[in-house]
């Protein structure tokens, strides 16, 4: 399953069973992408790290 990176427009390949909000990395620009739709597969730039994110 593939889609297009919204940053560099290269093809992004998703795992076999993508999950909503799953984080993917564009192999071309190394941008962090978030799955925003699984059917059809759509990705957007992942949110920036927030102040309270962590372990």
């Amino acid at each position: 399953m593939t889609t297009t990176c919204p940053e560099c427009f290269e093809t992004v390949t998703a795992p076999a069973e993508p999950v909503l909000h799953e984080i993917l990395e564009c192999a071309e620009c190394r941008g962090e992408l978030e799955v925003v739709s699984t059917a059809p597969l759509l990705v957007a730039l992942a949110p920036e790290v927030a102040e309270d994110w962590g372990e």
């Binding site: 795992p15 999950v19 909503l20 909000h21 799953e22 984080i23 978030e34 799955v35 992942a46 949110p47």
Partner: peptide, 27 residues
Amino acid sequence: LASRVGPDEKGLLTALRRGGHAAEVLD
């Protein structure tokens, strides 16, 4: 429960399903 599904969350989902559980992400 997750708003961002990374490799660890995918690993947990996989482990749950292998264990026979219906596992889903709760946004």
